Simulated scan of single mutants.
Amino acid sequence: MIISASLSCGKSSTPTPEVPVNPPTTVSTFSNPLMNGADPSVFQKDGVYYYLQTNGSSINLWTTTAMSKLSSSIPKTVYAPPAGGQNSRNVWAPELFYLDGKWYIYYTAGNGADISQRTWVLENSSADPTTGTWVDKGKIFSTSADFWAIDGTVFESGGSRYFLWCGRPDLTNVNLTQNIYISKMTNPYTLEGVATKLTEPEFSWEKNGFGVNEGPEVLVSSDNKASLIYSASFCGTDDYALGMMNLKVGGNPLVKADWTKSTQPVFTKQPQSNAFGPGHNSFFKSPDGTENWIIYHANSATNQGCADQRNIRMQKFTFNADGSPNFGQPVATGLQIAKPSGEK
């Protein structure tokens, strides 16, 4: 005869009723800021978001499948430049791209002197950019504009690839005015031909502190209309903001006249929302592809400047009837907003 374990231990054989376990509550909202940092950049591929921001001494890469949970991702240092080199100091604004079957990171760095800042390229042939070896491909520059250069990014249009960046042409470093330039690319680490100056600070809202057009990012709408979104005014002011240029349909990105520049900023400070100096942005789509999101940095209080107090924020945006983006206003810190559609 088989005696049950419960009887042999002198316990009742009456089954203990199961206590229902409630499934974990699904959190459907998040609030800004996501985390501390500046100069955010996002690249999406195969359901993964790759995130980078300015570190100063190296390049770190975050990966996540849910941007609202970015702060819980553990970054990996993928590149630290050798000490003493021309790209060893002031490592700023890295951006990741997947081009021609390889990964590329474009970043700004110098030797420690501000006037030495240039844009540089790293290449990785691994399928996963968090693994493999990042090869230094050197400086990327136009021979017609080989001067102070930051904030490089890549834009593809009409079967051609273009590089955009912010440049300061005064080699004496007395005139600090920053412009945005564009040049066609021969390959992911070489520019072809001369550089075109697309925009320079013209309006008062681009000249707070001193004249600045920087941080170019090209956004293409679903009907294939391209908008160049850039940051204007000195980042140390509360009035750092976003400006916009739109490329005419069928226009040549290298021809300045084919771009129309907005006379007003398209994204500005909102003191009542604890958003001062919003700018240096990137774009991404929600996991299900139905929503467009902007990610940017801002300060939470006035007069915090270009320092460690800057933090990362994101919010959904829409497009106007003419294909230009409508970013609205910076969302208030602490406000619960819906996560990107399709996040798990």
Rank of each mutant, 00 (worst) to 15 (best):
N208E: 03
N208V: 09
G209A: 07
G209L: 04
G211Y: 05
V212F: 06
N213S: 13
N213C: 15
E214P: 07
E214C: 11
E214T: 07
G215C: 01
E217K: 13
V218P: 14
L219Y: 00
S221G: 14
S221C: 14
S221E: 12
S222H: 11
D223T: 09
D223E: 11
D223C: 03
N224R: 09
N224S: 14
N224C: 10
K225T: 05
K225S: 04
K225W: 08
A226L: 12
A226T: 11
A226G: 12
I229T: 05
I229Q: 02
I229C: 08
Y230S: 03
S231R: 02
S231K: 03
A232G: 03
A232V: 02
S233F: 04
S233H: 07
F234Q: 01
C235E: 00
G236C: 15
T237F: 02
T237N: 08
T237H: 02
D238K: 02
D239F: 01
D239H: 02
Y240I: 08
A241R: 01
A241V: 03
L242A: 00
L242G: 00
L242S: 01
M244Q: 15
M245R: 09
M245W: 04
N246W: 04
L247G: 00
L247Y: 03
L247N: 00
L247W: 05
G251S: 13
G251H: 11
G251V: 14
G251D: 13
G251L: 13
G251M: 12
N252P: 11
N252S: 10
P253N: 05
P253Y: 02
L254C: 13
L254R: 10
V255P: 07
V255W: 03
V255L: 13
V255D: 07
K256V: 14
K256S: 14
K256F: 08
A257I: 13
D258P: 14
D258M: 12
D258G: 09
D258I: 15
D258V: 14
W259Q: 06
K261F: 04
K261W: 04
K261Q: 12
S262C: 12
S262T: 10
T263M: 13
T263C: 08
P265V: 02
V266W: 01
V266A: 06
F267Y: 14
T268D: 01
K269M: 06
K269W: 02
K269H: 06
Q270K: 15
Q270M: 13
P271I: 13
P271L: 12
P271T: 12
Q272W: 10
Q272T: 15
Q272F: 10
S273H: 15
S273G: 07
S273M: 09
N274A: 13
N274P: 08
N274I: 05
